[in-house]
Structures are given as structure tokens and as C-alpha cells.
Design a protein around this nucleic acid. Structure first.
Lengths: 224, 224
DNA sequence: CAGAAAAGATGCGTGCACGCAAGTTTGCGT
DNA sequence: ACGCAAACTTGCGTGCACGCATCTTTTCTG
């Protein structure tokens, strides 16, 4: 149930009651996770607490999230992966694909709400939360693969998947460097006045994605 | 202790007694894990059993491996990641870097001993073991980054890391397709006479790594 | 409209997985 | 040779994380 199989086909019948209740439960869990983590500190929240706040049992919690950390970071990333794919799909086909992907990633990772900055600050203070946050980048692969396959042609399905997965891993590297720069547990924990310089993140993302541009160019124009 | 920080500098003083005992413990644990998994089936082995067979406590087991599955697959992969990096480093610098990496990967993933084939068959029967096996590809990044940085020049450290991580993720995709082709839990569990067609793996690996070749070429010859 | 099938929620039991503290072993410097 | 620091081992307690079985809710079909 946690593995969300994403399909490029966005025209689908309106979801039924069961599907709507599932989404509502998922959102309730991740909002509760983040709210409690911010209120009590990340160590003061147990799965039992989150489940109770969301009105479900701890067993149900584990049907949705495999760990405490996953729910907390889910509140931050909130479907960012599908938004990245949608942003790439929305760009005109004459835009260089490598540029389209890069700008979509930069756009989605810097349009942060105030609430999210607070959550990111929280995430930097714990190793398990940082790892879970970095792990969310794997969610970029499936939706982006679908968009790239459509753009490159279905015969390039393998290429689409490799390129999409490489984008995900480049994003992970950029975020890892970014979070390292904000201070690790040893330096960042308990530190006061620490701010996340989001101005640096676009440069890190562009720098991490740049080495992949030739691969995108070659896939887009195989005759060269 | 589980995160093994790999250094390209291979000339180092001979390890001390403590280091040798750590390595011996790690090897004892992974050999015990695999032996017990083969003897009793993967579901018949507990961490307590593995620890006892290796002569350490369960707590010590978790100092070395974060899960039951990690020890089992560690017996299969057995430092393959460092061997890949060493194989790339050993190739003459006039060999195209993309080719060097591809051939090193293919070589290290197909030189399998009979014992390993038995373990791979076991791995295909359980989802958790397959996921853990795929996760081992992340270990390719650090050693390969060091080799690529040396080859491309230290100013390209970021590029080296992105390319190495992309190789790791391409290998993961190839292995995922390969394991899917050998049958999933539904089809493979309990199936008799199922063989892993290792002849197909080189093609899958080459196919997965091919889209990254232009990125390697551009990094190797930036003036073009 | 009613019954069957599918999917979700939950309790229970089991096996972890990890932080912490205390004890032991190894390495290093004098 | 000895003392101290670093690293490792281990017991203990706590909070999971998951498989299984059972019950409930939603969807689908005749």
C-alpha cells in the first residue's frame, strides 16, 4: 500500500470514497507527525502519539508509513515528486530537455512555504530525519520516467528510467551537500540562530544536474 | 561503524589487531547468515541464531548490520564495490572512461561462484532480500567517486560523485529488471528448476549504463 | 436491491533495532 | 611497563515494524 504506482495518465475517473478516505488518512497522519514533531521536538513523538492524533491505530499507521521519520518528511515533500514531473511535462517541447528538468527541480525545491522552512530546520537536527528526507528523492524516478518516456519515445523506456533515476540521485547529492552545509548533528544540534540559506540550494541543484546534461542531449537527439 | 568510509589511498599500514578482529567478526556474521539461510530457508533464521553461530551477542550483530537481510546479501556481494573501483582504476587511462566503467561493472557482476548462484536463487524468493540486494548497489558510489575524481581531476569532485552515483543507480535498475525477469515472489516462490540466466545480465548492465556514456565523455573531454 | 468480492482497519504476538550505560580490549604515549 | 584514551562488546529497556487473522466498509455485479 505504501508503494504508490504512478501513471502518466492523468485523466481518470474521480476517486471513490475509499480512495478519498485513504488520502485523507495519509494527510492526517503526516500533518499530525509534523505538528507533534515541531511542538515536542522530534524525539518526543512516538508512532502511538501520531496515530492517536490522526484518529487511527498504530497498526494502521504502519500500513501508510514504514517509520516515524517517513511521515514527518512526507509532510514536507507533499507530492513534490509528481509536481516535478508535471512541471517538466508542462514545458514546451522545444525547450532543451536537460534545461526543462533542471528548472523544474529548482522551482519545486525552492518554492518553500514558511511552514516548510521550520520543518527543514527540524530535519537538520536529526540524522534519521535527514536520511529519510534524502530518501524522498527516490520518489522522483517513477513520475519523471513516465514523462521522459513520453518525450523521448516509448522505445527509450530504459533510457528514460535511467535518466530519471540519475536525476533523483543528483538531487539527493545536492540536498546532502546542502544539509551538510547547514551543519550536522554534532555542529547543528542545539545550535542557535542557524538559518538554512535557501539561496545556495539552486546553485547546488544546478551544479549536481549539470554533469547529466550531455546524457539528456544525446537521448533527445540520437542522430548527433 | 556500518558506514565504511572508503579511501582511494590503498597503501596503508597493516591493520591492527582491533581492525583485524572487526573484519573477522563481519565475515563470520555474513557467512553464518548465508549458511543458515540456505540450510533453513530465509524465514527460518533469526538475528539471535546468526549472532550465536558467529559467537557474538545480538547487540553486536546490530553494530555490524542493520537488518537480517543485510548480512545475508553481504555474503553475496563481498566487497564487490571496491573491486569495481579497483578494476576501473586498473584500466589504462587511454581507455574510454565510460567503457572502462561498463566493463568493470559487467566483469564484477558476472564472475560469480557456484556458491553465489545458490545465494542469488535464495534472494529471488523474498522481497526483503531482493530489496536489500538492490540496496547494496549504493556501495558502488564512494569507491568509484574516488577513482573518477583521480581520473577527472579533483576540481571535478562534484561531477565524479554524480557520475558514480548515476552508475550505481543504473546498476540497480539493471539488477531490478534482471531479478524481475527471474520471477517475483508470486511466480518464483516455491518454483522448482528456476535458473538465473546470467547470460542476460551483461546485456542488461550495458543497456542500463549506455545512456550515461555521453555524460562520461563530456566529463572526460570538457573541451569538446 | 442484495450478495459477493475487494480493500481497509485493527488487535495480537513476535522479532527486532537502537540508545544508553557499564565492562573489556586494544592502541598509544611516556 | 604502565596508565590513559579510544574503540568494541554486551545487557537492558523501549519503541517499533510486520505477518496473520478477524472484522468492517466500500465497490462491483447480477
Amino acid at each position: 500500500m505504501r508503494s504508490h504506482l504512478w501513471k502518466a495518465d492523468t485523466v481518470s475517473p474521480p476517486p471513490g470514497l475509499r480512495e478519498r478516505k485513504k488520502q485523507a488518512t495519509r494527510e492526517a497522519l503526516r500533518e499530525a507527525a509534523l505538528r507533534l514533531a515541531v511542538e515536542r521536538g522530534p524525539d518526543g513523538v512516538r508512532v502511538e502519539d501520531i496515530a492517536e492524533a490522526a484518529g487511527v491505530s498504530p497498526r494502521t499507521y504502519n500500513n501508510y508509513f514504514a517509520s516515524r521519520e517517513q511521515a514527518i518528511v512526507a509532510a514536507v515533500t507533499a507530492d513534490r515528486e509528481t509536481r516535478i514531473a508535471a512541471a517538466v511535462a508542462a514545458r514546451p517541447t522545444e525547450v532543451r530537455l536537460a534545461d526543462a528538468v533542471t528548472e523544474a527541480v529548482v522551482e519545486q525545491y525552492t518554492n518553500t512555504r514558511e511552514h516548510e522552512r521550520e520543518a527543514l530546520l527540524l530535519i537538520t537536527t536529526r540524522t534519521a530525519l535527514r536520511e529519510a528526507f534524502l530518501d524522498t528523492t527516490t520518489g522522483i524516478e517513477a513520475p519523471l520516467t513516465a514523462v521522459l518516456a513520453e518525450r523521448l519515445g516509448d522505445t527509450e523506456a530504459r533510457t528514460a528510467r535511467v535518466l530519471a533515476a540519475s536525476v533523483a540521485t543528483a538531487v539527493r547529492i545536492a540536498l546532502d551537500e546542502w544539509l551538510q552545509g547547514t551543519g550536522t548533528d554534532a555542529a547543528g544540534a542545539g545550535a542557535t540562530g542557524l538559518l538554512i540559506p535557501s539561496g545556495a540550494l539552486p546553485d547546488l541543484l544546478r551544479g549536481a544536474l549539470a554533469p547529466l546534461a550531455p546524457a539528456f542531449d544525446a537521448a533527445e537527439n540520437p542522430s548527433r
